[in-house]
Nucleic acid binder design. Structure first.
Lengths: 154, 154
DNA sequence: GGAGGGTTGTTGACATGGCAACCATCGACC
DNA sequence: GGTCGATGGTTGCCATGTCAACAACCCTCC
């Protein structure tokens, strides 16, 4: 238990706007993405994981789960939905017969490449506007600090 | 369209950890709250709005919606769920026969008062740990800045 | 005084996410 | 080579949130 048992006004204000910020920003980005490309943020997240060169358009389910920090059931359902829309395909894994790969389809690649510029633009415009490199770094440090504490307390 | 069409490494890292942070922190806080008190974050949010003195334990539906920036259907359903658990009650509004008040019940007040300390403690521990007043202020300014931009672009 | 447009709130259909139970398989160890 | 705990993945159930349609009511303006 800390010294004081409450948040001071400053913290209160920051916490409130922080919560608010997340809700608003998320909603806005989701809507933009949905309207412009038909993708949800979750679709986008999966596709982003599958595009880097080292992934070669293919990852195991559990790898997706680890990278995104998603529950395995969430990954499974998300992939099912995306498979139904031809954005990805499941492929059996020879080494481990329980396992499954998720492959990016050509349609999936087209979709992410079409979606990325507008999405990134919006993020830059709303989130990074007017921040100096130094401020961006501080924000990143802060976020990583909290994440570290989250991981530490498990 | 900005000069560059992508995020630099610094921004990339910050954006990633920001997204991650939110997902993790939210999940953690929700679990703690749920486990310790049986309340969800949404329950908590509603109760918090109803407790300040100026509210006197009673607000109109639409006021709740405005303060929390929630869709009206979300408010409606959330209140229904909470009413079923005796945390709040709906009350007819005499002035406007379409309207409804939401009143905090004694059970609701007990619940929020029991939940608050542990919740706040966790927030302080995870989020504010090690931040100076000045850093807290900067964080708040940043959040409010983004919110202002969100509001401005509507 | 009533027509029309904006509010307030509810509902239903649907998409999403968490949790727990489950199945199949793997791998280590005896 | 069989047993057992851990791992990878799917499924069902439930809670939550969005959107669109609706119903009831308010208010303004003619």
């Amino acid at each position: 238990m800390g010294t004081s048992n409450w948040l001071d006004d400053n913290q209160q204000r920051t916490w409130r706007s922080w919560l608010d910020l997340h809700a608003q920003l998320n909603a806005r980005i989701n809507r933009q993405l949905q309207a412009a490309t038909g993708l949800s943020l979750s679709d986008y997240a999966i596709l982003v994981e599958l595009t880097p060169e080292e992934a070669e358009g293919s990852l195991r389910m559990f790898e997706l789960g680890e990278r995104l920090q998603w529950e395995k059931s969430r990954v499974s359902k998300q992939v099912s939905r995306m498979e139904a829309r031809n954005l990805v395909v499941r492929r059996h894994c020879a080494d481990d017969r329980r396992g499954a790969f998720v492959d990016l389809t050509p349609e999936g690649r087209v979709a992410i490449e079409a979606a990325a510029p507008g999405h990134v633009e919006l993020v830059r415009e709303l989130f990074f506007a007017g921040l100096s490199d130094e401020q961006v770094r501080q924000l990143g440090d802060f976020a990583e600090g909290v994440l570290a504490r989250l991981a530490a307390t498990d």
